[in-house]
Design a protein around this nucleic acid. Structure first.
Lengths: 224, 224
DNA sequence: GATTTCGGTTGACAAGTGTTCACTGACTTC
DNA sequence: GAAGTCAGTGAACACTTGTCAACCGAAATC
């Protein structure tokens, strides 16, 4: 974390901001502070029960400052969704890109999920908590992102030789099964991490078993 | 709903209450009102953002009356968990009890889930929302109940002929896969029901496909 | 019939809330 | 260097909130 304003270039990374300079940099810094404060508070709280004052207090700003960045707490939530799924996105893309037999792919996928949960605990918890949470905008944002996610997995599956003769529709349904399973597994890892870390390896083993079972079903689908 | 106090016998159904009479009956009625009010408000809210005053207002009681029934809102949440999972429990037990080939069982299970979500929308939404919600007590209650649930499914699976040679451990992991899948499917049904009911049949089809895939994997597990 | 029990009400407390307003002052632009 | 922009401040608005002690009166007990 830099002590003085970050470089102007850094601002250009963040979408539509044509006026650059120290001004924008400071603003981004405050925005970050708000997002971080929010995520931190959401560790043991719902977005719906979060307060503007609470967030700004944690971020070290005055209450009114919040409205310079977000119209709503829901908007802050949506911003967190994008952040949270971005990291997960690049992660899983890496897994899908590498080739290998089914067994290897499963092991790697589970490892990557486990590591991701550990390294982005806050993000994962936020997603699990708000996926069916009380704020519609956020729920929809997560669902949309997860849908795009399944589409990407489906596309990757289509490239594999085992998918010969599979319809687009079936591939999509398989992809959704994988994504749902991934979400469940991530949530289980998280819960284990927060209550009884020893259970972590059991969850990994279970996830691998389940994925192997699905993979096996996939191989025999035609013959059925 | 009776206009005057229900029979004393009815109170005996509810655990440890040795003092019977109109007094207890009225108390139970108020308790019900609180639970119903809570569930109704939780339709678009989290438990953590619920307020005592809010609930009592909806139930038609004074704020202080709440504390005659629950020490906490968390306690009310736990009570709702028990209620919510009780209905689901008897439901799935009915499915498991009946015999039939895998295909039939899958169809029936998905149908039952769909109907259950429609008939107990509030309960299902509550479970989905609070499973990873901000109130630890409730989270743990749901997880514990879901665990017992998986154990029961595992026991039922053990009785099936297809489970010859399966270890207890593998059966448990299979059962967890089924339970997780059921939860995901129920959540999807719920979301569809509230936004675009036309998608309902697509979700049912997806769930059946996924279950068939898992079933297929199960059959070929030994050969793998 | 007198007494106790206890679910429910009333009223008050201090504490916290979202949101807006006029404002300050560092940065940007001209 | 003057003028303008705008992120952030502090104070105030009108509420809502959890929780408690004191009290009421119908049901239960004696």
């Amino acid at each position: 974390m830099p002590d003085w304003p970050i470089s102007a270039n850094e601002c250009l990374l963040n979408g539509v901001s044509h006026t650059v300079g120290a001004r924008q940099a400071q603003k981004q810094q405050s925005r970050r502070a708000l997002l971080d404060a929010g995520l931190h508070l959401l560790a043991d709280q719902n977005l719906a029960s979060l307060g503007v004052r609470e967030v700004t207090r944690e971020a070290g700003l005055s209450p009114a400052a919040f409205y310079r960045h977000f119209p709503d707490l829901a908007a802050l939530g949506v911003a967190l969704v994008e952040e949270s799924l971005a990291s997960l996105h690049v992660m899983i893309r890496a897994v899908l890109a590498e080739a290998g037999d089914a067994e290897e792919l499963i092991d790697r996928a589970v490892d990557v999920i486990e590591r991701h949960v550990r390294e982005h605990r806050g993000h994962v918890r936020f997603l699990a908590r708000e996926r069916h949470g009380g704020v519609r905008q956020v729920r929809e944002a997560i669902d949309a992102e997860l849908g795009r996610f399944a589409a990407e997995v489906g596309a990757a599956l289509a490239l594999q030789p085992q998918s010969r003769g599979w319809s687009e529709r079936d591939l999509r349904m398989l992809a959704e099964l994988y994504v749902d399973h991934m979400v469940s597994t991530a949530a289980a890892f998280l819960e284990a991490l927060e209550t009884d870390p020893a259970r972590e390896s059991r969850i990994a083993a279970t996830a691998r078993f389940q994925l192997r079972l699905i993979s096996l079903g996939r191989e025999h689908w035609q013959a059925g």
